[in-house]
Design a protein around this nucleic acid. Structure first.
Lengths: 342, 342
DNA sequence: TAACCATACCCAAACGTTTGGGACAATCGT
DNA sequence: ACGATTGTCCCAAACGTTTGGGTATGGTTA
């Protein structure tokens, strides 16, 4: 009685009886290949079957289908943290594309902890997923190697690692774009809030930046950080203490950048005037901050959809190559042209 | 071949053969009630079965189980938008509690559009969910009434509507807390950025605020808005144009509040000095903003976990009553004591 | 007209569980 | 010493699909 609702107790058998046919015929008509359906029933019967299915509101039972076919049409997605808007947006893309491809998806947090990653992967496998999308890959790829060894199909998104198929933003280029912008503005004493060292995103963004500056003959101060506001705040405090004459800071993440803005202000400096600040991802907030934030726009939603499509082709047995999507620099008031002050 | 990995081809039959028993016995031992297992096998055999299961790494096949029992242990969750950090955090709570209760959950966006809500609910039902958690309820409850009519078990979270079971924050109280704070500070010319009129959250927060002011004999300017930064920006622009002598604005959402901060600054006023600003939800960002934001903390994660637990009790056939969790005002620099300026 | 071939179907097994109802012993009460 | 009870287990059906075989029916072909 509790929770018993007759959502759809119309099965193949219901239709078969209504149409005076065998369930196998109905099955083939309803879900066979066009070739198979023509061998299974005459055009007229096929139409009749479809008509009954329509009228009765037939919904195939996914559990029966999965049991029989050993395919679940289910995809597990792992992210460091869903309340990170960046990952949530990527997942929105995954979910979208999944719905379009008839694949159900579900998402789990791993907090970038290998133990959680393993546990969540096991959980996903126990639900018999057809494949995984991992948004929490670490550069060392040890968990990934384990998964690969088990023969589980998967793709990476947002971060890459080893030579596993992935969909990422060209983070190195993104870092370079910011560096070139800073160089244009004449900043010579600059710092980078580089994010976590285990994530390819932070590493590539900062090394793209650092390399560009190095080519210009300028060394850059770098410090790792968490990817959130607090992390950015602490990292910027450190940078400013190390080099009080800093005129620009690149944070590899918008949230970190917001923390940087706070730290700059706390140090008695004017963000955007005394210290230019740039972020990454161009989240909704960047444009709406009291001090609009210069940021590198990365195609988050698209990364999600492409990742799912990449996984689909992996599931088809193909061997697709990784994709690297283009970033775009969006310049706002947090990086005003440098004026010689006082 | 493609995507064929032997995750766990060990079934009840495997164990039964290994132990020289019947699958039914193994089944009862492994997943029967303590009472049932004792009637099914001797303590010794039971131990042996468990031992084999352990050693062979038995994982029950969820599809077979669901097919047989007509229960999927699957919960569908609807939210307006997952990339809204507030909803993402609530969902994290749901997912957490789901994992603890052996329930799989999946989440979908509806963008607060009834057509999407209906479509996503149908999708969830086609996946044979045991129940739904709706984080996108509208006050008119028309979609909810439809779902209820179909006999689908569900609970609401974040927003309430009609008399359906829900887990919410006491938003009215939250609004009152902000109003009392503003009154303490001596603000008499104030405005509210009230959010969407179809969401109980925005409505209750603003009416808690407005009622409190009204009791003090003061009328408040109110304007609806989207729940994001842009929405807050536009709403605040409107408020400031209507009443240039405004000294405080309450936005029913942190993101909207950030937009308000921007609009205040654009109007040539100093946020926190000339115009106090308060938000709602106390997201990570509030504390880390360049101008730390006064905000009402709501227990988002807890709301999610409680919602799932509420649904569990609904599924058990109980008739649990709604829960309203307590908010807490967190005062920061965006609402400094009023100083008579100039 | 016999052999043949499509055409349009149906039969039955299988996927891995759960679950109501036995079956067969050993043990018990009297 | 006998029927009744209990303890321990097995049998078989069912959930809703898919899929590798059939098997009639009718029409061609030689």
């Amino acid at each position: 009685m509790p929770g018993r609702y007759k959502s759809s107790s119309v099965t193949l058998k219901t239709i078969a009886q209504a149409a005076g046919l065998d369930v196998s015929t109905v099955s083939r008509v309803l879900s066979g290949s066009p070739d198979e359906v023509s061998r299974a029933a005459s055009p007229a019967t096929a139409a009749a079957v479809r008509d009954w299915a329509q009228r009765l509101g037939y919904q195939p039972n996914p559990h029966a289908k999965s049991l029989r076919t050993a395919r679940s049409n289910l995809i597990g997605v792992l992210v460091p943290r869903l309340s990170d808007m960046v990952l949530a947006t990527i997942y929105e893309g995954v979910e979208d594309a999944g719905a379009r491809n008839g694949l159900a998806t579900f998402v789990m947090n791993t907090y970038d902890r290998p133990a959680e990653q393993r546990a969540r992967i096991d959980l996903a496998l126990s639900r018999h997923v057809d494949g995984l999308i991992l948004g929490d890959a670490h550069r060392d790829a040890v968990v990934l190697d384990e998964v690969a060894a088990r023969g589980v199909p998967f793709v990476l998104v947002s971060r890459y690692a080893s030579k596993y198929p992935s969909v990422t933003c060209d983070d190195y280029l993104g870092g370079r774009l910011v560096a070139e912008h800073f160089l244009d503005l004449g900043h010579v004493k600059v710092g980078v809030v580089a994010g976590e060292p285990f994530a390819s995103t932070g590493v590539d963004r900062s090394s793209g930046f650092v390399d560009t500056y190095r080519k210009a003959g300028i060394e850059v101060l770098t410090v790792n950080s968490a990817f959130d506001a607090r992390g950015g705040h602490e990292a910027a405090e450190y940078l400013i203490k190390q080099a009080p004459n800093l005129t620009a800071i690149f944070a590899v993440n918008d949230f970190a950048a917001i923390g940087v803005l706070g730290a700059v202000r706390d140090a008695g400096l004017r963000p955007g005037r005394d210290v230019a600040v740039a972020g990454y991802n161009d989240t909704q907030l960047a444009a709406e901050l009291p001090l609009p934030l210069t940021s590198v726009r990365s195609p988050l939603h698209t990364m999600g959809t492409r990742a799912l499509e990449l996984l689909v082709s992996v599931l088809r047995g193909q061997n697709p190559s990784s994709e690297r999507l283009a970033p775009e620099l969006v310049i706002r008031e947090s990086t005003l042209p440098l004026v010689r002050n006082s």
